[in-house]
Write a protein that binds this DNA or RNA. Sequence first.
RNA 1: GGUGCGAUGGCCGAGUGGUUAGGCAAAGGUCUGCAAAACCUUGUACAGCAGUUCGAUUCUGCUUCGCACCUCCA
Length: 489
Amino acid sequence: METKLSLYNTLTRRKEEFVPIAPPLVGMYVCGPTVYGDPHLGHARSAITFDLLFRYLKSLGYKVRYVRNITDVGHLEHDADEGEDKIARKARLEQLEPMEVAQYYTNRYHEFMDRMGVLRPSIEPLASGHIIEQIELTERILQAGYAYQSNGSVYFDVEKYDRKYHYGILSGRNLEEMQSGGRSLDGQSDKRSPYDFALWKKAQPEHIMRWPSPWSEGFPGWHTECTAMSTKYLGETFDIHGGGMDLMFPHHECEIAQSCAALGHDQARYWIHNNMITIGGQKMGKSLGNFITLDEFFTGRHEKLSQPFSPMTIRFFILQAHYRSTLDFSNEALEAAEKGLDRLMKAVDTLSKITPSDSSTLDTADLTTRFYEAMNDDLNSPVAISVLFDWVRNINQLLDGSQTISSADLATLRSEFAGMVGDILGLCNEKTAAADDKVAPLMDMILEIRAKAKADRDWTTSDLIRNRLTAIGIRVKDNKDGRSDWEME
RNA sequence: GGUGCGAUGGCCGAGUGGUUAGGCAAAGGUCUGCAAAACCUUGUACAGCAGUUCGAUUCUGCUUCGCACCUCCA
């Protein structure tokens, strides 16, 4: 490999060469969804970003253990003691068991991510299945002296922690600044300081999701699951921790604090954060209520959508922007992505129709070198895709005959190109997939009849066939050699 | 208020101290029975003002505008 993979590490605020702790093993933990609502575009961005990293690391030969959690414990709406659990509230509104809500949205999440070509993680632990581990973590932090009990709840002592470590190391803040510019929370809570966060919360009588603990019947604080589960499955130190930028503070900051307090050190070597999807320049999210769910994208049922957009179009749209840039939603951008993807997938198809020559006028090394250079540069998928498009032109020229390729080079090109598009970028041809095995021979027959009509200069018949096919959504394209191709709209 | 980030051609979106991003859209052409597709050609884009430099869209400073986090959030 000419270049090596470098990744932007939020912790150091620069790109660093990626060096795993114990190659070829790589441990990666990514914060997954809280399952109390339908997945939206934002979830897709995070899932696809780390799916790309997962796929790319694997393609480089690493053996990756990818852990992505499901948060099925609702935590609290507000930081105050009387806050309501998100999942419990949803359950109350829909008259379901909390776990029924969590299961339903977990299923929905899986269904939509599958359709977008997002590979399932190696381990997908549930927060509710790791209460014991979270209690153990809390005990360790208590023993280390960085937490205190208060009315049955346990809180992390941020001020004490900050005297030895640095609370704010990831998000570039420091406690003093936060305190001086701080908003004054009225002392309605059991916390000593407004910046302290809960490791364990005592449940109010009406709180449904609750577990026994040494301190009270209650539930874990919302930062503990990630620390507890990443430690369990990836060890005390692992390679990559990912998530959305909005999780940087306080969530990831608190994870670091918990690790340092319990283990004496941060767990993750590389902290990777994907940027947000915006709509009209503003973050698409729950708090603003301006999000569009994936279901709405796939069906087109949303007032802001001009048409349905397929799962692969969404994936391609996301991949066409760098993961650390904000990506603005618009119908025009999605439509452009749809057409661009179509062009790319057609080229994959075209590759199988090219006949080799004695020599090559193209150098396939150009594709490989530039593609991997882009991917190695902090996963620059937009540039990688632009390299692919340069080769889409080349592939089309090969079909036209204005370029030639040897059979050895063609074999290389086929496997490289398909691997980049399919295995690394995770894009597949939804149109081809739609045509099942029986349709293809049927189409061959129909086009054979049409070819005969064309040979007889019977344009009435040939146009009738083509028009009828167009009407049912099958596009016919005539080639110079008299043969025709077809594709599903 | 604190801490960060951004402003690129009609739209989306990379990148660079001097030489082509790419996609979509648009215009002309080639091919074709017609069409579609494909191919070829076509765009003096880098918010504004100073400064550094032989040269800045790229570096520095300021200005304007926008965004994110500080509260659940991918």
